[in-house]
Design a protein around this nucleic acid. Structure first.
Lengths: 139, 139
DNA sequence: TATGGGGCTTCCAGTTACTGGAGGGTCAAG
DNA sequence: CTTGACCCTCCAGTAACTGGAAGCCCCATA
């Protein structure tokens, strides 16, 4: 199979597949004309990578997962550990985004969004400006 | 003020402040010895940037927000539009992460995590392998 | 006066995971 | 023989910093 074929079958752009070869995730053979010659196993690996990336695993996670995938003697605990850590990171990221979201939604709601310059969003961003905040200085 | 002072006061690393100068977000003066000389307004801008970045705005958003911040004749609608778009992107990102999270949590839960090689996580990633999935082929 | 320790400077490289483009070979069809 | 679809390599750019090297500047202390 040429790169276009595996690209179609795996759903990964050809550029990405070349990149994955560059960083040693796949090692396709070469035809006499210099074209990459992919085997079934290469295709499987690429599809595996596409799926893992879609689940947000980093390339280094993918490398480790791929090694486990190919290791018949693996312990599922190793796989689970990687996935579990990734899950924790996703949770952290979600929490962070939700916190941003809450603040931002509040500010957007409070902003008139008209032709006047007064804007609670800018006031919030102007952290050191702190006019009329919430202390006794306000009086 | 030297860079160390504004770094402490704004909470931004000195490296980041230099970077912000590089890309034209702040334009501190220079002392005779070549040191950056920050004014109060520079400090305010940097604190503004720190807060905006903490809310996840991109640097380009920050540039636009900073321009509005300094424009006395701005319309709050312009600010609101930027914030609203950012909010939408955050929502998209949260949704995507939650979708990943759901799949991953399911897989992690299903994995024994012991010393045996069988692993539903790897099975899921092996999209083209598709042995014993959920169709009639399974029989 | 020498020296030591911060703090400051610039510049270069690396990070993550690709993506775009230039410039050029290969192959099958008409 | 040419056209168009493939394929190749190499270089550069993305976002937003971060780390490190090499080298001034300034103050205080011995």
């Amino acid at each position: 199979m040429n790169i276009g074929d595996v690209s179609r079958l795996s759903g990964l752009p050809a550029k990405t597949i070349r990149y994955y070869e560059d960083i040693g995730l796949v090692r396709p053979l070469r035809s006499e004309n210099g074209y990459r010659a992919f085997r079934e196993t290469d295709l499987h690996k690429l599809a595996f990578l596409g799926r893992a990336r879609a689940l947000g695993f980093t390339i280094e996670d993918c490398r480790a997962l791929l090694a486990l995938y190919e290791d018949e003697g693996r312990e599922s605990a190793s796989v689970k550990r990687i996935a579990q850590e990734h899950l924790t990171q996703i949770d952290d990221k979600i929490a962070q985004l939700q916190s941003m979201r809450a603040t931002l939604a509040h500010l957007v709601h409070a902003c008139a969004g008209d032709d006047r310059p007064d804007c609670p969003i800018l006031s919030d961003l102007d952290v050191l400006g702190a006019k009329s905040c919430c202390g006794p200085d306000d009086a």
